[in-house]
Design a protein around this nucleic acid. Sequence first.
DNA 1: TTTTTATAGTTTGTAATACAAACTAGTTTA
DNA 2: TAAACTAGTTTGTATTACAAACTATAAAAA
Lengths: 102, 102
Amino acid sequence: MNLPDLDKVIHERARLRVLACLASHPRHTSSFTELKESLDMTAGNLSSQLSVLEDSEYINIEKKFHGKKPFTEVRLTDKGAEAFEKYIEALDQMIAALKAKK
Amino acid sequence: MNLPDLDKVIHERARLRVLACLASHPRHTSSFTELKESLDMTAGNLSSQLSVLEDSEYINIEKKFHGKKPFTEVRLTDKGAEAFEKYIEALDQMIAALKAKK
DNA sequence: TTTTTATAGTTTGTAATACAAACTAGTTTA
DNA sequence: TAAACTAGTTTGTATTACAAACTATAAAAA
């Protein structure tokens, strides 16, 4: 069996969702609120998970304003995009190996 | 984005490896020792993870003897095989969606 | 025979962590 | 001016992944 060592930071389900969301955005960018709504996460959980991703330098977070409203921009870094791609590639290979064996 | 709700029991990395191992065996069966060696896990961790899988009825565990040596047989149940297949299918679709978007 | 070592696991303890509830801070509406 | 809303963060807790320590038996060595 070809069992890859999957990136622990990415593998967590909530974070995987966040990264998938960001990676599929044309500009690799989204906002706190958009992520929260589209992934149906509580703000607390999203905030925590974003911190983990930020500590790994997989995303960066910029606080701006839209008019008078705070607005948090979340962007996938190059490092994050690379790590995510590698993770997906590893999964894909594992799946291919499993299907081949069946 | 097509973000599936991945089975928590299966998603954990150690258990994913165990299930992948079992699923790729012709008889969906392995032994404690073989899993331990081939997955390079500590006996303690493997034992715990097997208990979780057993509680979910994804595997069953039978204690036999080979001569005088105890020998623990681990077998993927039908329920487990089904759940694992569903999990892999979900991942595969997510990956496909991600690649399509790129 | 009595240690010692090896085999095959299980139980226990702990550090990490996923997640939600409670909180903060500013803004808009009644 | 008070109430309700928006946009998040911090704190607390329950879960849990994992390894160290332990149990039990068997074989080998002394």
